[in-house]
Write a protein that binds this DNA or RNA. Sequence first.
DNA 1: CCTTGCACCTCTAGTCGCTAGAGGATGTAG
DNA 2: CTACATCCTCTAGCGACTAGAGGTGCAAGG
Lengths: 140, 140
Amino acid sequence: MKKITIGEASRQSGVKVPTIRYYEGIGLLSAPSRSEGNQRSYEPTDISRLVFIRHARELGFEVDAIRTLLILQDDPNQSCASADAIAKARLIDVEQRIRSLMALKVELEAMVAGCGHGRVDQCRVIEVLADHGQCAHNHH
Amino acid sequence: MKKITIGEASRQSGVKVPTIRYYEGIGLLSAPSRSEGNQRSYEPTDISRLVFIRHARELGFEVDAIRTLLILQDDPNQSCASADAIAKARLIDVEQRIRSLMALKVELEAMVAGCGHGRVDQCRVIEVLADHGQCAHNHH
DNA sequence: CCTTGCACCTCTAGTCGCTAGAGGATGTAG
DNA sequence: CTACATCCTCTAGCGACTAGAGGTGCAAGG
């Protein structure tokens, strides 16, 4: 059981060093034991936890949601209904975001396509921003 | 030329009152004249500017980008190449975001579909988070 | 043994784009 | 004249980090 430094934990988990300390500060990760010289010393389980957190963050889960998911993970007898609900909520959020971004894409494409590369007073980019009524996809 | 209060400006532009003050503070909007009792008094051009800013924010442009766009708008003789570049950069960003969100959607759908609504130790939501190698769409 | 130099420590402040609240002044309608 | 809405300034908070200052620990080379 060799000690894992925070730098090593960072390399193994893909979570940056200051972020690991930040997660400890907000209580997402429990405080590890310390070396004689007061340096953090992690266990393999801490690495798994960090990987778990990183994946969840990559999937856009908020820290509060991750906190709940971690509690669930620690108690395997519990019903996974909460985990399911969190994931479903996240899915709905992602779908909503995709829809708005698609709408934005349409507007931006129209703006860029309409730009004749001339002077600003003929520029559709500026024009559309000044008067939303001229938008391709008027969503107000 | 009746005076426009900040509340009226807010109603007409769709930008919240504290946000208008905030925009003034960061120099997006020039400080308006004041009434005898030190209350802000806006001109119709200020409303147009606020509308411009709101549309740009709705399209996800950052404040710095909007600052540039506003400078361009104020000088109609300039080439619109910068405006075009800003809009194009934004379009590329939006397209990138859509791509990542679609990938997330696939993963989340797999997680949710795999959840048998049993106990946590059989829950795919938790499982996938703990071991990214099991992801439907492994993007590491 | 000693120095070099990197990795570690704590703490504070900054990022972005607002939003909320305190505590007080002004303006308007009845 | 009194309510009451709206306005003012100022500071602090949000989420999820990131950056930097100023100091300590530790392993390897000379």
